[in-house]
Amino acid sequence: MAKRSNEPLLWALFSGGGVVAAFLLPVLIFLYGLAFPLGWLQPPDYERTLELVQHPLARPILFLLCFLSLFHWAHRFRFTLYDGLQIKHLNLVINLFCYGGAVTGTVAAAYLLWTLP
C-alpha cells in the first residue's frame, strides 16, 4: 500500500490559517501596531484587556488564531523557499524549521492562554 501523504492536512491548515489571518490580522495590526502606539485611538488598559481575554470565547479564538496562522506561515514559507530560492535539496532543514517553528509557537500559545489569570 502506498504511504499516505500528510499534504492534505497541511493544506487544510494552510487555508484555515489564510482565512483567519485575512479576517483578523489587518485590524489587529492596525490597532496594536499603529493606532494605539501612535495615539490615534485609546488602547484598552491592563484590567480591560484581562476582562476581554476572560470572555469564554476569547481563548479559543486566540488559540485558533495562533495555531492556524502559524501553520499557514509554515506551509506558504516552505514553498516560497522552494520556488524562490530553489533550495529543494534542503528539504529536511526547511521542513524542520517551518513546521517545527509552527508547533513550538502553537505549544507556547496553548501554555500562555492556559496559564493566564
Binding site: I29, G33, L65, S69, W73, T80, G105, L112
Partner: peptide
C-alpha cells in the same frame, strides 16, 4: 507568498503580549 512571514511575525508579537 512573503506576506506569510508577517503573519508569523504578528503571532510572535501576540505571544509576547500574552
Amino acid at each position: 507568498e512573503l506576506s506569510s512571514v508577517f503573519v508569523a511575525c504578528y503571532v510572535v508579537i501576540l505571544l509576547l503580549q500574552l
